[in-house]
Design a protein around this nucleic acid. Structure first.
Lengths: 121, 121
DNA sequence: GCACAAATGAAAATGATTTTCATTTCCATG
DNA sequence: CATGGAAATGAAAATCATTTTCATTTGTGC
């Protein structure tokens, strides 16, 4: 079941740990690696499932993948240049938990993302 | 140049100020309004340009539009039955704001959603 | 070697969004 | 009331990322 193709992972690393599936594919082609686009997509999905990479969205909707640490964190993304900063989210954890409890929900998870224009944009 | 079709805006309002282009289109159709999908897209783009609506992305990459300045709320969604509860997010607003300030970001927005299993599931 | 599961990838399908282009609606002016 | 051009409209085609299908290849244990 582990389709986390190591060549895809290593290419993503070489790309600066931040690229779309199409970019990873083109990069591997340019480097002479023989691989299909389908496999790149599957490998990236696998890596996301295994929580080895994170997936975000560009403004145009294209999914971009990036290596991430295991600690649960959130992102502050610049709408202009796509620059991303990891931010601490202790407040959110508590908020999500208390809101869920209040309404009798179990097995609680959450998503949260902050976006804006960074100082350079 | 102002293609900010008022019927599209009013439909977006009626949708709770939060919907994708396709949803706005389907909603208008269901209500018997005669309009083309193309026009809905153009109107929404126009509204974004005029800063009357904000655009975000769903996890699947679909663009969703929401009225600017609308007092926005967050959702607690059940993974089992899809039931949704609106929850208060004062804590998030503060968190997003302070995180953004800390990193020199302007024009800050955020998304946040909590999910889990409701008491019935 | 042989069978069988997993991996692969080419091609087709999907679905949102954009573009093209012919037609219609508006509006000012003769 | 024309009428002429600019803006708006929308159906259909094009685009593009992503997913699915399915036939083929690869790998592994027997």
């Amino acid at each position: 079941m582990s389709r986390s193709n190591p060549r895809v992972l290593s290419t993503l690393e070489r790309a600066g740990g931040f690229a779309s599936a199409q970019e990873v594919y083109r990069l591997m082609q340019r480097e002479g690696e023989s691989i299909g686009l389908t496999t790149v997509y599957r490998a990236l999905q696998s890596l996301v499932n295994d929580k080895i990479v994170d997936v975000l969205r560009r403004d145009d909707g294209e999914a971009i993948y990036r290596l991430c640490g295991e600690a649960h964190h959130h992102h502050l993304v610049c709408k202009g240049c796509g620059d991303t900063v990891e931010i601490e989210g202790g407040a959110i954890e508590k908020w999500a938990k208390s809101m869920a409890e209040e309404h009798g929900f179990r097995e609680v998870g959450h998503t949260a993302e902050v976006f804006g224009l960074c100082s350079k944009c």
